[in-house]
């Protein structure tokens, strides 16, 4: 039987596909045949206990670790054999739990480094600076425009990393614990920005241990445990799933 929901899902072709992705470090299977698809504009929450493979999955998508088996495609292009910067240029923006900023550059220079690498032909340096200023303002760190990034606090660095990632105009955004160690006020700023990006149709995968936040934000949640995908559904479904409850409480 065709329900309206089924029809919608089959009609929108997936923008991002993970198919039987496996990744082994020695004998340890950090990812074990993980498969899922995403349609454009989806905001997917990725949860799981420590060591369940969340960050490893993001690293596999970003080509930081090569897959042992399986494939990952974005916009119908295989990305699992690309090198890291090619994944970035293919439209995938990645944020790390520990911000990977350029510490001896100012905030603006951080943004320009990323902006230049993926700039369009018609974009001038002034255009990039202008866009960088808008991003810094929208993330409330515009007063640090000419501050050396290494002198900023952890939370401010996270916001800078966010701004730098958005400078790339990603079409898929990977957020790894974006709220870790960030002041509640700054978390509000990030949440607001993530909501806006989602409303604008950006496809987002977010990893967080902050279950209330991620459940409130995401349309769909997938849960990992021991490298396996154990649940995939709406926040309400996943929250009630006995396997997930068992993985969290039993693990």
């Amino acid at each position: 039987m065709w329900s309206e929901g089924d029809y919608r899902v089959t009609a929108a072709s997936p923008i991002f596909e993970v198919e039987d992705a496996s990744l082994a470090f020695g004998g340890n299977r950090a990812l074990d045949s993980v498969s899922f698809n995403m349609v454009a504009g989806e905001l997917l929450g990725l949860i799981g206990p420590n060591g369940s493979g969340k960050t490893t999955l993001l690293n596999a998508v970003g080509s930081i670790y090569p897959l042992s088996d399986g494939k990952i495609s974005f916009e119908r292009q295989r990305i699992d054999s690309l090198s890291m910067h090619e994944v970035t240029r293919a439209g995938i923006g990645r944020m790390f739990q520990a911000p990977r900023i350029f510490p001896h550059m100012t905030c603006m220079e951080n943004l320009l480094a990323a902006g230049f690498a993926v700039r369009e032909d018609a974009e001038s340096r002034e255009d990039l600076i202008h866009r960088g200023e808008e991003l810094l303002t929208s993330l409330t760190i515009d007063r640090f425009r000419d501050t050396v990034a290494g002198s900023m606090s952890g939370g401010q660095r996270m916001l800078l990393q966010f701004a730098r990632t958005l400078m790339l105009r990603p079409r898929l955004l990977l957020l790894d614990e974006p709220f870790g160690g960030v002041h509640p006020k700054l978390i509000e700023v990030m949440l607001e920005r993530i909501r806006t990006l989602h409303e604008d149709g950006l496809t987002i995968i977010m990893v967080s241990h902050d279950l209330p936040t991620i459940m409130g934000l995401s349309q769909r949640i997938i849960a990992l445990a021991n490298g396996k995908l154990i649940a995939d559904g709406t926040p309400a479904e996943v929250r009630e799933d006995p396997v997930v409850i068992d993985a969290y409480l039993g693990g």
Binding site: G62, I64, S83, M84, H85, T88, R89, G93, R94, F96, R100, I101, F102, P103, H104, M105, E109, L112, A113, A114, F116, A117, V118, R164, T165, M167, L168
Partner: peptide, 25 residues
């Protein structure tokens, strides 16, 4: 130059450079 910026970015954070679209290799 942009090349110099990319070199310095790579020096300051290799991973940061690659997720900024810079070819670190």
């Amino acid at each position: 130059t942009w090349l110099g910026r990319a070199l310095m970015a790579t020096a300051q954070s290799r991973v940061g450079a690659t997720v900024s679209g810079i070819n670190a290799i």
